[in-house]
Amino acid sequence: MIELKHVRKIYGSGQARVVAIQDINFKIVQGEVALLMGPSGAGKSTLLTIAGSLQKPSSGEVVIAGQEVSKLSTRELSKLRLSELGFVLQAYNLVPFLTVAEQFQLVDRIKHNGNLSHEELDKLLQRLDIKQLLNKYPNQLSGGQRQRVSIARALYPNPSVILADEPTASLDSERAVAVGQLFQQLAQEYHKAVLLVTHDQRLETYADHIYQMLDGKIQVADN
């Protein structure tokens, strides 16, 4: 579903030059949950953003849903992101001036079909225990509530790939488990490809693959 071939990313130049990731060959497949773990600074976020077309690699190739990203225009990229990729971003992943309900309405206004139906959204909100929050603004939510709302927001356009950066960082065990189960179900029953960047060992149970990153390289492929 997403394939990275010989991907390398270098930030800055001269003294400030940082090789964030190098020689990455990596693939995430529909129907599977992949976990990307590793210490801070290892290059996990960089890999996630490149896999999600949010930034371009310095060299190498990124293929998403059969399309080579470097050949797409900004506009085509927007479309690809909206319909194929669901991001659960770390901190500021909701539009601050929209209520929870309006976050979904915004998607409806731009992508007119293929989004979750009323019933499907209702079920998702119940499952994430955020149904009572529909009229709240993000700054009225706790960290955990915000995280669950942004998971729902990412799933709403019914993307085929889900990319999440620390999706359970501020959730208690019960809710972290619920989120892990949700991702597993999305992969198994709805054939989504799921990539989770995380430190959270509670999620390991739900993963099909666990990758360890260190110094910009993928160290262990653990099944």
Partner: peptide
């Protein structure tokens, strides 16, 4: 701009 970055990442076109 930070809000715009979030929306761009979500695939909201810059035209909008």
């Amino acid at each position: 701009l930070q809000n715009f970055a979030v929306m761009r990442a979500q695939g909201i076109p810059s035209r909008v």
